[in-house]
Design a protein around this nucleic acid. Sequence first.
DNA 1: TATGAATGAGACTTCATTCAT
DNA 2: TATGAATGAAGTCTCATTCAT
Lengths: 204, 204, 204, 204
Amino acid sequence: MAVAEPENAPRRRADAIRNQEAIVEAATEVLAEQGTAVDVREIARRSGVGMGTLYRHFPKKEDLIRTVLRQDFSKWAESARQAAIGAEDPWAALTGFYEQALTGYARHRVIVENFALTWSDPDLEGIQQLRLVIEELRAGAADLLRPGVTTEDLLLLLVSLGHAVQLTDECRPLMWNRLLRISLDGLRADHGEPLPVAHRSRSK
Amino acid sequence: MAVAEPENAPRRRADAIRNQEAIVEAATEVLAEQGTAVDVREIARRSGVGMGTLYRHFPKKEDLIRTVLRQDFSKWAESARQAAIGAEDPWAALTGFYEQALTGYARHRVIVENFALTWSDPDLEGIQQLRLVIEELRAGAADLLRPGVTTEDLLLLLVSLGHAVQLTDECRPLMWNRLLRISLDGLRADHGEPLPVAHRSRSK
Amino acid sequence: MAVAEPENAPRRRADAIRNQEAIVEAATEVLAEQGTAVDVREIARRSGVGMGTLYRHFPKKEDLIRTVLRQDFSKWAESARQAAIGAEDPWAALTGFYEQALTGYARHRVIVENFALTWSDPDLEGIQQLRLVIEELRAGAADLLRPGVTTEDLLLLLVSLGHAVQLTDECRPLMWNRLLRISLDGLRADHGEPLPVAHRSRSK
Amino acid sequence: MAVAEPENAPRRRADAIRNQEAIVEAATEVLAEQGTAVDVREIARRSGVGMGTLYRHFPKKEDLIRTVLRQDFSKWAESARQAAIGAEDPWAALTGFYEQALTGYARHRVIVENFALTWSDPDLEGIQQLRLVIEELRAGAADLLRPGVTTEDLLLLLVSLGHAVQLTDECRPLMWNRLLRISLDGLRADHGEPLPVAHRSRSK
DNA sequence: TATGAATGAGACTTCATTCAT
DNA sequence: TATGAATGAAGTCTCATTCAT
């Protein structure tokens, strides 16, 4: 039961697939190490393919970066989702989700470096999936959350704390745990004041 | 308030100072517009000085960026501090401080782009001053804060929310207000659980 | 009219021939549109064959270009020849030949781009055929031509005017007609002066 | 009485001028040898300047080519003009002009390679100057020319013959002289038939 | 000392040709 | 044998930094 492929897709790409994977893998590594400023040749070198091959698969450097971003994002989001699944109760699910997500965040430099992009990229299905997961968690814990907390709030909180993780990862690992606790407490139902109204999107 | 200069400094600093100021001013502008990827020539051009002069004052591009960063940072922090000063009560002071700081954050692209640098730069006095301000606010509102909240927590919260501001500034301005409210509520004294222990800084 | 093939040629040429024809056809199209700078892949794509097949038939890009050039050249020359055939008198034949040839010239980009090549290529039978045609026309109109006019003169005149056609095709179509008239008048017998001596070909 | 320079032009460019000249000189050489397909680095190398310098003076490769084209064109046109000046009578002037122009034509590969560009480039003052020269020659020899011959005709004839020169320069030098004679004879007044009407420019 | 021209290592990308499948 | 993926040497252009004037 392999992943369904379009019937009309061309066959015969065993090595092409292997190469593409090697490129993405190498790119993931290199981007994590050096950020988006890397020389494309370094990626080609580590992939063990020539420049032409790399550019056959990814006509622009940015195409490659996007691909890595999406994949990295998906993996990251999925691991966080898994952490939520095994939880005992809805609140533990939410908490576990954040903990897992944030724990892995610092390792995903591409995500970090491009979150502004990620955030506003409508093509990036990953973020939609993440939204769905969060929405589920929110719905499950609705009784425990203060009224008015939206999925967007929870998503933005995640990203916001992610930044804190990144900053403190080197010098104060786990310090972000305290912020997380504070934020989660702030999300609880026992806060009487409603949240301010979120302004709607400016344009488009 | 001027920076102390060595007594035995050579004369003829008049135009040198004027140049340096022009450079920093132009750099502030340009960096805000285009980020750190700008061509140094653009800065020289807008300053009205030659490349040689620019490099006499700032031997590396990064030196200039740092300088702008410090100054920008100071201005930003100061405006937030002022917002706290006029407040009616300690809690309003803390709230006002965050609001002012975050409102201006998105406009300070250099700060945003370099906060990781800022954060860990021991030479950057600006962050120390900011710490002092926050420490004062924390001390003033100590009774209202849950036990164990440190100045570092408050500082990290600021940076963390700053990131949220940056991400939502274009498409959802003021959405960050909701996160701020949530976090501030989480900081309140009426939460029974103590915060987890912050791990100590890793030895370099 | 088909090109003679060696008797002992291997069988199974059916699809090979079909492929070769498809390649040449596509190449003719593409070269006309984009000139010799086209990517070989574009030709392969339009031919519906793979790169390997293309290179099996034409080991170098230039081989393919040459082939197209020859074929294009032949067609062009033949159409001009036909125009001469139906003429009432020898002079009209000559005139009609030039008019037809020049009218079609601008559409034959490969010829235009490679005439220097064409001109000096001893392998290019096309130019020989063209010479033969012109020679016939010249012989037929010998009485009307000034003494000393050679076939080479007439051929060079054709190419020379062809260049004029190319230059004016876009902005001043048919302006070349005036040049043609001038030249043809200059070729007439009623000019007393003999032509200057043409230097012999330099030994390679 | 040096060439007037704008008063507000910046001074201090002794070496810059020297470099620019060196670049243009080298480019002229290289372009004559290898055509416009040369590697820009080759030009830089021969100029004795770095890539940066070359690109400071000519931000795009085409800018450099254009510059060479213009200069080459001007020199060429000027030498032809000079040949006309010393002539005994108007017809000799016209003849001498063509002879000189065509004699030098083959050496100007950039012109040849780009004449289509040259021809339609309204910024290229060179072609305007050439038009003026030809117009003068035409006016001077008006009595000797068949009625209706325009400056544009004479210009196009020049370019057209230029192409013939280029083609025969290697293998049959001076063969073009015969074509020139033919054409000039065709231009003479003693041809009764008027020339066909030149169609006006299509657009713009 | 101030100027801005010069430097040149590299960045991204293309494409004729080869070769594994 | 046909396919089209792989190759990698070029090619154009940028920009932080140095240096002659």
